[in-house]
């Protein structure tokens, strides 16, 4: 029984399910995400030390380096990527990795944009299911 159903905009479509890891802070994957393990390694980031592999990762957008795309693609190939990424602004760097992953590996990583107000209703530990149409179905702990 879902506690919350939010309608997101699918920037890149796909279905996914996982435990939420949500932060108000943007994240650069270059220097901030260890693709060999899935650990968030940006020591200034609130999610530092958490493992995002298989989780539904919420970061409002990607920060800084354009190499974020390449690192996310490596994580997808290595099996250490998040199951889905929730954002609040169109983020071309995350989206490109998802598009190339589909091209190269026939792999779907949904990237879903939420309004800041909807995004603020999510919390780490929520169980989240994402549909092809971009619905974000939330079960609170």
């Amino acid at each position: 029984m879902a506690d919350l159903v939010l309608q997101g905009r699918p920037v890149v479509r796909g279905v996914a399910q996982g435990e939420a890891l949500i932060s108000p802070e943007p994240l650069s994957f270059w220097g901030g995400y260890d693709f060999t393990t899935g650990e968030i390694t940006d020591r200034r980031h609130p999610l530092s030390g958490q493992n995002a592999g298989g989780k539904v990762l919420g970061v409002p957008f990607s920060r800084g380096s354009s190499t974020t795309t390449a690192v996310l693609l490596e994580a997808i190939r290595a099996g250490t990527a998040p199951a889905a990424i929730l954002i609040t602004e169109d983020d071309s760097f995350f989206a490109l990795a998802a598009i190339v992953a589909r091209e190269m590996y026939d792999y779907r990583l949904p990237i879903i944009a939420l309004t800041p107000a909807d995004y603020a209703r999510l919390a780490t530990g929520d169980c989240i299911r994402i549909t092809e149409e971009g619905s974000v179905i939330v079960t609170k702990e």
Partner: peptide, 9 residues
């Protein structure tokens, strides 16, 4: 070079 995926691409 970042890793295998970029090389495969």
């Amino acid at each position: 070079y970042i890793g295998e995926a970029g090389l495969e691409y």
